[in-house]
Design a protein around this nucleic acid. Structure first.
Length: 222
DNA sequence: GCGACAG
DNA sequence: ATCTTGTCGC
């Protein structure tokens, strides 16, 4: 596990800013969206387990599910999550055979202090459209909170709309949606809404989360 | 100075 | 994220 010092953090900040400049917040894929992937990572001490699921819309039928295991390279530092999980996710993605149009990631996209959240990192470095969906705000703010189901309010960061705060269900706490790269603000929101099932988190992420934890437990059991 | 801080 | 069982409520 790599140790963090101020110098390393500064270097990573520069990498983030470079990646942020390469992010393209426009739709760069075929529509309508029918296949979407979700990825999540679970940990067991130093072991990291990534799971990627590819599912079809609108029925949420899973057409592929893979897992990938490796050692956690660096610890978690708020706003530097992409360097902990990003490389692992990029390697896991290489094992996916099915085609998909958008990758949904657990974390933020451009709704990040340096506009380079995990979803942006993965999107830019893989060259694939990506969306970041998070359970809480990291950067920026919302002037008001969405009240009704599927209601949404913009997330503002330095006077710019970088994503949306979305109420997924009646009483559920809102989630934060922001483009990673190669997708527009509107489409990131639309895809997130279309990916919602019965739970708070969109199905691609919920299923990836379950899969990641399943393999973690299986590995521990052996 | 104090608190907040994706997973 | 992770450590963890039962339990209150729709």
């Amino acid at each position: 596990m790599v140790e963090f010092d101020e110098e390393l953090i500064e270097r990573l900040r520069k990498v983030q800013k470079t990646i942020a400049l390469k992010a393209i917040i426009e739709d760069r894929f075929e529509k309508p969206i029918c296949k979407i992937a979700g990825v999540d990572v679970a940990y067991n001490g130093l072991n990291a387990y990534a799971a990627v699921v590819v599912l079809k819309l609108p029925d949420f039928r899973v057409i592929e599910k893979i897992t990938y295991r490796d050692k956690a390279a660096i610890p978690y530092i708020p706003s530097l999550l992409c360097f902990r999980e990003g490389p692992l996710i990029l390697r896991a993605l290489r094992n996916i055979r099915e085609e998909f149009q958008v990758l949904m990631v657990e974390g933020h996209g451009i709704a990040h202090p340096f506009k380079c959240g995990l979803a942006t990192y993965v999107g830019v470095l893989s060259g694939r459209p990506s969306i970041g969906v998070s359970r809480r705000l990291l950067a920026g703010c919302t002037c008001e909170v969405p009240k009704a189901p599927l209601e949404h309010k913009p997330i503002l960061l330095n006077g710019e709309v970088v994503g949306y705060c979305l109420r997924p269900r009646n009483r559920a706490k809102p989630i934060c949606v922001s483009p990673g790269s190669f997708i527009s603000l509107e489409t990131a929101l639309e895809v997130s809404i279309r990916s919602l099932g019965y739970y708070r988190m969109p199905e691609p992420l919920r299923l990836a989360h379950l899969a990641a934890n399943d393999t973690k437990r299986l590995h521990v059991f052996e």
